[in-house]
Design a protein around this nucleic acid. Structure first.
Lengths: 226, 226, 226, 226
DNA sequence: GATGAATGAGACTTCATTCAT
DNA sequence: GATGAATGAAGTCTCATTCAT
């Protein structure tokens, strides 16, 4: 890995180099405030190459988006493939998530902090990419809680049969909550640098595990109980 | 709504008109993709008026930011002022939050979906505004859980004394989780239009209430319990 | 002279107040870089008043120009009215000039440092005002040297009859030289704050007095004398 | 002059073309009244090229300034390099000056008629450029008069030893006077088109040569001699 | 594979000027 | 006599994108 920027680099590699830089820049500045000029400069090539390989600024952004979403999804899948009881698997998923964000902060930002400023056509891509991530989480949640009645951690013995009524909607609700919380916690992590990704995952697990099942079963906390 | 667009509108009112429009536009397009031209047009005035009253695009954005943060914080405070047991108060807070977002979607987007693309000086303002919101939530959380041992909803009888160990950090963790989840759930709401803000708040309450206390007490879910 | 900015000031006085401020601002920033806004602000009135009284930015500038040219011309005339031998009178004129500039720096700058940036129609006015100043100097020069043969300071006894051949052109040449030198020396004065206007006038007098007569007589220094 | 406006001109050349035009425009209109649009148009290119090569309007102006100051200084130095007695050298310097101004009127105007309207940072540059020009003249003056006692043109035999007391300040005084006079005489030249630069230089030489030495020696004309 | 040269379009911002009170 | 409200026009500057080599 001689770091000298070589001429005549084959297309596949150049593309990756460009995307590497672009993720960094898009993450730092946001889509609109990023300039193709800067990206080309930092990639050590001229602008026409960017356009030759990635077609347009939108194309470049979409390429970034897809690569980062893929990476995150794969990290999730790898973690979830682990055998084990469902709570362990969800925990593993969350750990994978926080570890990914800690290591690929830029990728996460590109995926999740570019809501308002994008053109219609990019917004669609972003929605797709996020759907892919959310789907992973929702999957884990569904599996995890389905098994919870049998292997869960005790207290709620009211029967896992409620899990049969799992609706897509509920799993989606929980997945949104988890991903939203996790996203927000990346900010919290930045202000508490001592915290390991695993620690954050553990805390979050503690906070939601007990309640998740409830939600997926339908309400049980009664508003006016006080 | 006989809001006929009049000439010679006094400054105070014009400013609000401008900010109203700006919140809408910034929310729809994001900061950079918004143009002062469009905002002026939609406000029914010429660009120089915008600059005369709000100084600059940044000034305009900051004005939007502050107004919306104030509104949200006030909505929260009003809800939290209600008497009642702590879980009720947190529930009221969440309801207020989702109601606010449902009614002021644009304001929320301006506050919470403008991360990466902003200049240093605006980023500071955004951070401040968000801190104000987070502080409200953290406050509610702290109060709520401190009282939980005494007036809580039963199941966890392990004693409220653990609440004494509440650390700022933990309340902040929970507040980040809640706000992040809530933010993300606004997307969920958009895809499930039948859901009332109160319903969403209830679901979220169910999901986190049981676990919050755990987090604030220190961990209790054990990773390798399986 | 209670300095409180009063309302309902009569036109004549308001006009002078405005012009006072305008001379200062035009001098500091130049014509184009000055804004009517700033002038109105500093004058403590609203822009429409400026337009009511002075018609336009150009009108305002021309008013400044005329007033300052008048003042300078009058200072010159007062000095030149002094009786005395011609060299004394020229010296008195130069002293008056440097004293004026030292006290009305802004006025001078407005008159003499606004060459390139002005519109055709203002440039005409400027030329007129400068002509008035140059004419004063040229007048002094002509008188002074005409008498030089009789009452001059000695050395050149070749006779004052050459003075009869004075051409307008020559007096004008000398006047331009003197005013140009004097203008430039105002910069020199700024860098040598110890120097009194009178001292500068004396130095300049020394430098040009002997040679002036020559020029007005036709050449006498021969290029290839070396 | 087959300078057909070509496409794809190399940077170095384009830069010079731009500066050529800019000097003309800045000279004609002054800094603020000049528009980059006009400069680009006259240079036969689009605005972005101007900004690509010269950074900003200020950068463009500074580039003009430096080039013209360099040219003038070099013209001076070339003239002063001529061997010969000191009066001849000063005369050569003045001739060079007037010849330069006659041929590069625009350059001179850019250098010397842009006083009041410039931003702080440009004003610094202008001051620097002018200093360079003044320094050349002051150098010539110093040399010239130092030798005057020995090789001078006769009349003043009071001893060249006074020349040893030359102070920086005095040379500077004379230089300011000369440059100011010369600047002002460029206006005179415009109104007397028949005059050659050499003729003007000769007249000025006549006017100041005799007196210069006096100034540099300390005063000798006595105010109240009459 | 690679790039220096070039631009149309559009952004923010300011200014001289006027209107209605 | 005086002003707050309002604007058309113009200016500086940046950007995504392409052409010709």
């Amino acid at each position: 890995m001689t770091e000298e920027r070589r001429r005549r680099v084959p297309r596949r590699i150049r593309e990756q180099q460009i995307i590497d830089v672009a993720v960094r820049v898009f993450s730092k500045r946001g889509y609109h405030a990023s300039s193709v000029d800067e990206i080309a400069d930092l990639a050590g090539i001229s602008k026409p190459m960017v356009y030759l390989y990635l077609e347009s600024k939108e194309g470049l952004f979409i390429a970034c988006l897809r690569r980062e979403a893929d990476r995150l999804v794969r990290a999730f899948q790898d973690a979830a493939r682990e055998a084990g009881p469902p709570d362990q698997r969800l925990y593993a998923g969350l750990r994978a998530f926080f570890a990914f964000v800690a290591e690929h902060r830029d990728g996460w930002v590109v995926l999740y902090r570019q809501a308002a400023e994008l053109s219609e056509s990019i917004a669609r891509e972003v929605a797709l990419a996020r759907r892919a991530v959310l789907a992973q989480v929702a999957g884990l949640v569904r599996e995890g809680v389905q098994g919870q009645g049998a292997q869960g951690q005790g207290a709620q013995g009211e029967g896992g049969d409620g899990a049969g009524q799992l609706r897509e909607e509920d799993a989606d609700f929980v997945a949104h909550s988890l991903v939203g919380a996790a996203d927000s916690l990346t900010d919290w992590m930045e202000r508490h640098p001592g915290q390991s990704p695993d620690g954050v995952a553990l805390r979050l697990m503690n906070m939601v595990w007990a309640g998740m099942e409830r939600v997926l079963r339908g309400e049980s906390w009664v508003p006016h109980s006080g």
